[in-house]
Design a protein around this nucleic acid. Structure first.
Lengths: 336, 336
DNA sequence: CTGTTAGCGCATTCAC
DNA sequence: GTGAATGCGCTAACAG
């Protein structure tokens, strides 16, 4: 077994099998009508040489990579992890792999990252919740084919898959109102984030539909720490009459829950708390968290379906929006 | 602005600038000593044509991708997410990207996945906690350059970075013993997992050092659900005298915590509980979780450092092992 | 300092 | 059905 310094090439295989490179190529790509005898010899040579085709060469010829990029603002967020996993698994079935490009919340070079990622891949999945719509619009046409996540309506003619945050919030508020709450707090997410804007729209809709409803909007964030840090403001609102709080997402709600517990404020006795996303931990919190469930994996799968279509040159598919499902748990109850 | 069907090539740029392809290449790669005038014209042509170099062609010539693969058993695990993020960020600094290959816990085709990933990338980061040592050894030589995570000692001559689980467990048991515990439960992780074996070794060491110490090993798992599902067995042990439980990881501990609460068992009053990993949620649990902190991001950075060295042809660097730091929180206390 | 030439490894014409 | 030639886009020698 002589080890070669450089990996075997198709030429080596051809020589070893005593056939032409073209034949080897045909066999390897399963082209029909190749003499069985040739097939056998080629397969043997391939095995003996431990030959593996060069992806680089193949990419150059085909103009395709079999790789897509997924740019995310923060890999630490369970939401994006879920989508990544969904896309990753779905794409793998079609022989595609996914490259992750974590912009680490640096909105400023999100465009550069996306463009760079596109150069190495056949397409990109863009999660850019904070990129202003006009910049987003310019970006997507530079990096097509692309599908955007949670930017429905911001970029016409670009496939988009996302969550109906406004709808989810309305459902949630409806649940709280039904319990008897009239004075709510919305603990907002990152100010510039599109999905936060969507949630705010849901809040506004709810307010418009019910004049007796009061909702105070407090600054929050998107992580556990942000939720905990908001406890002062939340408690102040509570003493001023608020009876329930809707957090930007589960992480924030969980952080708040802990801070409230430390302060001795009973949830849901003295204050109801709800989140968004239904991350695995939500059901395990104390009290378990009322939240809105979003199908992360399925969302990822849908993203891939659209991306694959685009790569294949199919027309832009319709946008899909998942309606969150209200998951009522212990953290919300009727106010005292 | 005439739009071209096919992206501009270096030949287009050369023609437009009235120079040779070689010159264009030189300018683009920042080769020294190129006539400033030429540089200007090339830059202008590049801008006008919106030229972007083909990574595929470049890869073919260089034999390198500027991409590494990271194969993980489960992207849903915060541990791997953290490492991924660490590697991703560190690699980006050097112009490298990372491809994720989620084997979705399917140990059987872990090898195939890794090999396939290696074919598209310059190197691979291998997280394969359950792959038997002999198969691992054979695998790594097929996919070198590679650095393995948490398989210290299993593959000599392969850079490895990991966590000293045994040491962490000993430190933790020491803490529990100091509190007065003598009868512990170890809620084990996946049976075939190397890191579970390491923890068991830590348990054995502790037992060997202290004959009066009793440790019952119970079957667990690696997720929230596994922890919750173990509550019956844990409670039985408790009634039989056990006063503290060491869970495989934080997820398991958190799941158990919730199940215990539902059963009305006070932690740490009636039972102490500790985890491993110090995931963000650990500090926010009720009660907050005593655990062992491992530097995920730094671990990822170390992985990249080693991988980069290997790619550059440097000799195999020494293995690094991080000693976990004990994080004492509310979930452990002296037994009644 | 610049241009010309020759591959990198493969898939794909086109003749045979 | 098979082989020989051509080119994907780029960089690295080599001349000039």
């Amino acid at each position: 077994m002589t080890a070669r310094a450089h990996p075997a090439t198709i030429a080596d295989v051809a020589a070893r099998a005593g056939v032409s490179q073209a034949s080897v190529s045909r066999v390897l790509n399963g082209k029909p009508s190749v003499d069985p005898e040739i097939v056998r010899r080629v397969r043997r040579a391939v095995a003996e040489l431990g030959y593996a085709p060069s992806m680089a060469a193949r990419s150059l010829v085909h103009g395709r990579n079999q790789t897509v990029a997924m740019v995310v603002p923060d890999l630490g967020n369970p939401m994006f992890q879920g989508i990544l996993e969904g896309v990753s698994v779905a794409a793998a079935v079609d022989g595609y792999r996914v490259l992750v490009a974590d912009t680490v919340e640096r909105v400023d070079d999100e465009e550069a990252t996306a463009v760079e990622a596109r150069q190495r891949c056949d397409a990109v999945v863009l999660c850019a919740p904070r990129l202003p719509a006009d910049r987003l619009a310019r970006l997507v046409e530079r990096i097509a084919p692309v599908v955007v996540v949670n930017r429905q309506g911001d970029v016409p003619d670009v496939p988009s898959v996302g969550v109906d945050y406004a709808r989810g919030i309305r459902d949630l508020v409806g649940h709280l109102v039904a319990l008897g709450h009239r004075d709510l707090v919305y603990l907002s997410g990152p100010g510039s984030s599109r999905s936060n804007a969507d949630r705010l729209r849901g809040i506004d809709d709810a307010r418009a539909a019910d004049a007796s409803l009061r909702v105070r909007v407090l600054d929050g964030g998107s992580g556990l720490d942000d939720g905990a840090a908001a406890v002062d403001a939340v408690d102040a609102a509570r003493r001023d009459g608020a009876t329930a709080v809707v957090a930007f997402n589960d992480l924030v709600a969980l952080g708040l829950l802990t801070a409230l517990r430390r302060r001795g404020i009973d949830v849901p006795g003295e204050l109801s708390v709800a989140g968004f996303d239904d991350i695995p931990m939500a059901a395990y919190a104390a009290p378990s968290l009322t939240t809105l469930s979003v199908p992360r994996a399925e969302l990822g799968a849908q993203v891939w379906t659209r991306l694959r279509g685009l790569i294949a040159g199919e027309p832009v598919a319709h946008a899909v929006t998942f309606r969150p499902r209200l998951e009522v748990r212990e953290s919300t109850a009727a106010p005292r």
